[in-house]
Nucleic acid binder design. Structure first.
Lengths: 238, 238
DNA sequence: GAGTGGTCTAGACCACGGG
DNA sequence: CCGTGGTCTAGACCACTCT
């Protein structure tokens, strides 16, 4: 059909085989693009084409101007479970980490007014966090919380689980969760916060959490590296 | 921070703006790469970089050696619902289509034996289908069904809903559904069947359906174009 | 057959990282 | 500082579609 008649596919297969053969292990750096050129009369652009392919497959990733690295395995995320990031990552034997990038009070705009069923101008908290697994930044999130439901929220330490703060401090439990997911490209802001090249493929996860009274408690936009996540849903009917 | 100092970002923004301004509408073809070069001293590689960026964002897609086209909006898929492709695509005002590429009986191998809890060598049906929306191929799927549960299945017309054939002809209802989703790259076979360039980003959806007795009825691997799909899950607890 | 995108070459300069 | 990847140029030939 089509086979390694294409040069960059041949290069891709070479590298993929060396990774599969554990010559390079997860987290390790590959030789530089120029080093890969030596020996075979291959243009650097062709090498890069092969690397892009492996990146799209989730096999490798890059650190800007540092090099190409072998990807660690993805974590499994089940949107029908209530566990937060910290607990499901840990349960999979990985080391989760959260950094709060900013937390401020803002006024409710048109879009948020619609989502939260609150008047325009009502106080809201806006929290931006970066989350990492085993030291690699994997997602950036922007959270909006209705300030009238959780007054003083941003004075708490939010580097752990937001869900448990809402529960233990404010007695707010989540009764309904709406999750939207869509492949996307990481645009300027997200890419910068994840320290990746803008335009890299990612996965957008938008969550809306409701309490038992049907009020929107939390509106969360997450942008994941496309190679860091696997979604798993298990549904039963009776 | 970074802005249209990057040439290809400037080109990207131009094209994106012309699409947003409805100069080019969904399904329409963009000017050729070489036509876009005229006027500005821009190398073709730079134009292509901009096009790749828009492709990653899901804004445009390509037909091999034909040109670049504006992407139609994605369909919404809810893995917690039982509706099949044909019905939820239609419900969203789009025109679904299914082609059966092949349907054969095969012997259960090690992997399938594990999944279906059946002996190695047991008869299974293997069905490959291509599904389109509004005339554009969006996913390719490979389905395995336990032949002992649905004898003669492949003699039926499978260009519609498989679920409804299983239900109406064999009385098999699905009681549990396990769905895994992961961003991936479309590899040789899938890419060929979707008539896209191999290596394009995609979404892999793997479904395992169980009946009321807990038997695996159907094992389905789907590979979607990354720009054709949006996943939405709505979960409640009581 | 003309035009398209797909692949490939062989250079160049840049901004940023600390292998 | 040197090496890295990131960007860009200006060509070339190919396989394919039919715009």
């Amino acid at each position: 059909m089509q086979q390694p008649d294409l040069q960059y596919i041949g290069v891709r297969d070479d590298i993929a085989a060396r990774i599969a053969g554990s010559e390079f292990k997860p987290g390790e750096r590959l030789p530089s693009e120029r080093q890969m050129q030596i020996g075979g009369g291959v243009a650097r652009g062709t090498i890069r084409e092969a690397l892009f392919q492996l990146e799209a497959e989730g096999v490798i990733y890059r650190k800007d101007r540092s090099g190409w690295y072998v990807s660690p395995p993805p974590v499994v995320y089940d949107p029908t479970r209530w566990e937060g990031f910290m607990s499901y990552v840990e349960a999979q034997g990985r080391r989760p980490e959260t950094e709060t990038l900013s937390k401020v009070e803002i006024a409710c705009d048109d879009m948020l007014a619609q989502i939260f069923s609150r008047p325009v101008g009502a106080p809201m908290y806006w929290i931006r966090r970066r989350r990492s697994i085993d030291g690699r930044a994997v997602l950036i999130e922007s959270i909006i919380v209705d300030a009238s439901l959780a007054p003083g929220l941003v004075e708490h330490d939010l580097d752990g689980s937001l869900t448990s703060v809402l529960k233990s401090v404010y007695g707010i439990g989540v009764a309904r969760n709406k999750v939207d997911m869509q492949p996307c490209a990481l645009t300027r802001d997200e890419a910068e916060a994840l320290r990746v090249k803008s335009g890299l493929p990612g996965l957008s996860v938008i969550r809306t959490c409701y309490d038992a009274q049907g009020r929107v408690v939390e509106f969360d936009r997450e942008y994941w590296r496309h190679d860091a996540l696997k979604v798993s849903v298990d549904i039963r009917v009776r």
